[in-house]
Design a binder for these strands. Sequence first.
RNA 1: UGGGGGAUCGUCUAACGGCAGGACGGAUGACUCUGACUCAUCUAGUCUAGGUUCGAAUCCUAGUCCCCCAGCCA
Length: 556
Amino acid sequence: MNKPVDPNVSNFIRNIIDEDLASGKHTTVVTRFPPEPNGYLHIGHAKSICLNFGLARDYGGRCHLRFDDTNPVKEEEEYMESIKEDVRWLGFDWGEHLYHASDYFEQLYEFAVKLIKKGKAYVCHLSQDEIREYRGTLTEPGRESPYRNRSVEENLDLFERMRKGEFADGECVLRAKIDMASPNVVMRDPILYRIRHVSHPRTGDRWCIYPMYDFTHCLSDALEGITHSICTLEFENNRPLYEWILEEVFDGPHPQQIEFARLNLSYTVMSKRKLLRLVEEGIVSGWDDPRMPTIAGLRRRGFTPEAIRDFCDRIGVAKANSVVDYALLEHCLREDLNQRAERTMAVLRPLKVVITNYPEGQVEYLEAVNNPQDPSAGTRQIPFAREIYIEQDDFAEDPPKGFFRLAPGREVRLRFAYFITCTDVIKDEAGNIIEVHCTYDPETKGGTAPDGRKVKGTIHWVSVEHSLPAEVRLYDHLFTKEDPNEGDLSENVNPNSLEVLTDARVEPRMQAAKPLERFQFERVGYFCVDPDTTAGRLVFNRTVPLRDSWAKIQKS
RNA sequence: UGGGGGAUCGUCUAACGGCAGGACGGAUGACUCUGACUCAUCUAGUCUAGGUUCGAAUCCUAGUCCCCCAGCCA
């Protein structure tokens, strides 16, 4: 954690904890992050991770990582590994406190038996459709199941036989006996256990009955001594059930469920279902496509854990549904990268410049600062020669008003090198500019003129002979709409979310760049080395462009 | 039309009966060997209508709008 915690952070959950601590209700804070291992983590999960682990850190408590693995049909071991990797990468440590809901299956079974013995649960043989019918609707009460008043003995026997595998999938379920007329549908005799003759990633074939979320979660929390069980808004309706179950069977202290609004980000989607769709329809290359809001995607894109944590701190925590502006995420990223990314020069769309008065065959090495924000990053030597590449955008034959880059007759500074003045524009038969001729002023070596004259523009460059070819992948929002859910998702996909440039040129130092290493391409943006990079082929992802006030002026 | 939640600058979020504050975005300017960074100034808000109070974003009443719930998913 590179940043000290702002002592002024205030949100409704901290207020609750402060009160609980002050009143003596709790003497410590124990939270948990409880993902279901059925997919990849995304930035919405990062919010929850930062919240839960952050609270534990700030209050000197602890935060458990618990896999909510109660549905073997959807869950896989592979996901558990990726989740652990992502949480660790984000910078959090659960220490000894790694748990699985499946660790509690035996205890959970005993709690269910206890409930049956209290006459508060029963085995129901209604079919799935019948259960739905009997449940009633939002405005009409449900009806009681004909199996609702079976004797305790019969229920005990039936439940045991469910465990033994005497029933087929779907033949019966264990239900809580609460209130079929409750205005809260969750309380209309909710299902506690269902039968699934499926082997579980962790318990194998030991069980063929699996507890439902509502039964599992509250008891898992209680067993682990969780004090504050923080979840998202859609579980608000489940809170009465959470409390009912604990009240009925759990003797120790009860955790308190607190709900907060999940993260929504403009120009992206956050639901696992929709993310899966993007992958399956080939709209993106995979879960770690750099355009994905998954932790894996963000990592590959070049995001830092520090930037993501800072973002999560800044968005706050509240109960109102909201959509955070993507620009805030970009701001956090740039702020972090500006401090730590070494600078380099790279030309994305090359335009050849011949410096006609520079001796042929001569090469000079010029000193360049690696990171003006961090003197300890040192300097490097960059080769300069008669032929260089500059960015096509940095030259205009007919410069618009306010343009102070290279143009016929104009003098600009080549960063860390010399002042050059454009003398000629070379075109092909079609009239395309293919080369620009300039002269340089030998007196301006290093970038300053002894006579004190100033130039308005400084542009970046690389040597034709010494630079390395590279592929550069430019990313934009995956969707064209702030809210991609408005209308048909696939129609809102941004056709220009990926642009591949294959003719980019980078400084020779990039030969040594390692996958995921981050750089600032001066005047262009922050980039990171894509894992697709091989010995003979450099591939960069644009993490985020630099702010560009010239582009803004041009637009208006 | 049942139940549960929620509405504060364009966006996100503080203020817990006592000066509506911060951040992002936007605008303007300064600086500049990155049109970056940084700095400065500005911009802009309490859903509506009543009420209580010396004083209301906050308490009360009545509305309006938005979200969630009828999986043997979580």
